[in-house]
Design a protein around this nucleic acid. Sequence first.
DNA 1: AGGCTGACATCGC
DNA 2: CGCGATGCCAGCC
Length: 122
Amino acid sequence: MAPIKKILPSGKKDTSFFEQVYAVVALIPFGRVTSYGAIAKFLGTKMSARMVGWALNNAHHLPNVPAHRVVNRNGQLSGKAHFKTPNQMQELLELEGITIHNDCIVNFNTLFWDPSKELTIE
DNA sequence: AGGCTGACATCGC
DNA sequence: CGCGATGCCAGCC
């Protein structure tokens, strides 16, 4: 369990929603995936799932932010269109041993990584 | 300075 | 049970 705030870039007081999203996404284990809603819920505002997507849009230009491991609650690759190439997201996931079928993650339930179960907020 | 938009999720009718 | 409307925060017209 990693305290989220420790991971935030060099102790800025900027504990913004985005920063937390980056932190959580960056902590997703190899070969695992999570959902926008799970992240939003973990951050305390379950209805801000949209913001997670927006944050990832910003995060997309950052290193170490595996946005391809974040999908919607159906396990569908909703954000693949925002990658350099639409199939890069699938490629990356398959590279991690995840199987994609019709833009949906197979065994999503098994591969699902719940931050609120694996992480702790200080 | 104010309002629309955005890679979603959930509640209400 | 299915579709429409609402919520959230920040960035960009």
